Structures are given as C-alpha cells and as structure tokens.
Computed example of a mutant assay.
Amino acid sequence: MEFKGTKGKWTKQQNREGDIQISSSGFRNLATVNFYPEGFREKYINGKLSGSPAPDSSGYRRECIYNAKLIAKAPEMLEMLQKINNIENEEFCKESFNVEDLKRKLSRLIKEATEI
C-alpha cells in the first residue's frame, strides 16, 4: 500500500499566533494545532477578551505540543510500519538481519513522537 498523503519529512514550528504548524519539507502547511480553547481566538481578535487565555494549569498547552509531535512523525511511523510489514519470516533467521538495529530505530522514532 502506498501513502497517498504529502510525501517527505514533516516538521513542526510555532507560528506568530503561538499555534504549532505542521509543514512538509516543501514548506507546505499541512495542519495547525491551536493552543486556545474553542471560541477564544474570536474573542481575542474582536477585542472582547475577558478572563485568562492560559489553560496551562490544566496541561492543555503541553497536550497540544505532544499532539503536534505525533502528527509530525506520522509519515516516518508509517514508513517504519511498512518496512516491518514487508519483512519475510526467513529474514529473521538470517544472520544479516539485525533485530537490535530495528529495535533501536523503533525506540528512537517512538521517543521523537512522544517526548518534548
């Protein structure tokens, strides 16, 4: 099966508004992870903001960062799963197949997708 989405490495960066944008290596915006609760941005833009915009105490901002990291790593995770899926059983028996190398690559990818 071939991935039909945007090819290439995906990255994450924070924009001027403080949201995290997921972009492809071609600088194309693929997704935006917003930091603010629904309706907050409209109130702020219209100058009618009341109360605090910081849902940090609940861990909301941190959760958004983790979501963005996972989204950005999706193509690499899919590629790794496809490689694992294409491994034939007899390859596991060959000395040339390095299970430890595969485990290291998987651990690195999981860490990159789940840690700040």
Score class of each variant (00 low, 15 high):
K69S: 04
F97Y: 12
G18M: 04
N67S: 12
I65S: 05
K4V: 11
R28N: 09
V33S: 00
A74E: 05
C93D: 10
Q14W: 05
N98H: 11
L49S: 14
W10K: 00
K103W: 07
E91L: 02
S57P: 06
K48H: 06
L49T: 15
K12R: 15
N98C: 09
G18H: 01
E100R: 14
F97L: 03
L30M: 05
L102G: 01
Y66D: 10
A74H: 04
E90R: 11
F97N: 03
G5S: 07
K111V: 08
I71W: 00
E63L: 08
F3K: 07
P53A: 08
Q21E: 12
M77D: 02
M77T: 13
A74F: 06
Y60L: 14
K73R: 13
E79F: 08
Y60R: 09
S52H: 11
Q13M: 07
F97A: 00
I87A: 04
Q14E: 15
L78E: 12
I65M: 05
E112V: 01
S50K: 12
N67G: 07
T11V: 09
E63R: 15
P37F: 03
N34D: 08
Q21C: 09
P75K: 01
A68C: 07
E112W: 01
K73T: 05
L30Y: 01
N15R: 03
M80W: 08
Q82W: 06
D56K: 14
I71Y: 01
I110S: 08
D56V: 15
A74D: 05
S23W: 02
N29Y: 03
R61W: 10
F97M: 02
K43C: 01
E17G: 06
A54Y: 11
N98Y: 03
K12I: 10
G39H: 03
Y36A: 10
I65D: 01
Q21D: 13
C93W: 05
I20F: 07
Q21F: 02
K48P: 00
P53W: 04
S58R: 08
M80I: 09
G5H: 06
Y36T: 09
R41M: 11
S52D: 13
Q82H: 07
E17P: 02
I45G: 01
N67K: 13
K12E: 04
P53Q: 10
G59W: 06
K48E: 12
I71S: 00
N34T: 15
E88V: 06
I45T: 13
K105I: 04
N67C: 10
G5N: 06
D56P: 03
K43R: 15
C64F: 00
N29T: 15
E17K: 11
I116F: 12
T32W: 05
S50F: 05
S52V: 14
V99L: 10
T11L: 04
E79T: 13
M80S: 09
I87P: 01
E95C: 04
L70G: 04
G59R: 04
G8M: 01
R41T: 15
Y36E: 13
G18P: 02
K7P: 11
L78S: 07
G51F: 02
I110T: 09
S52L: 08
N86D: 13
N34P: 08
S24C: 05
Q82Y: 04
A72M: 03
A72S: 15
I87E: 05
L49D: 12
V33L: 02
V33Q: 00
E95A: 09
P53H: 11
F27M: 09
V99K: 14
G47M: 03
E115C: 13
P53C: 06
P75E: 03
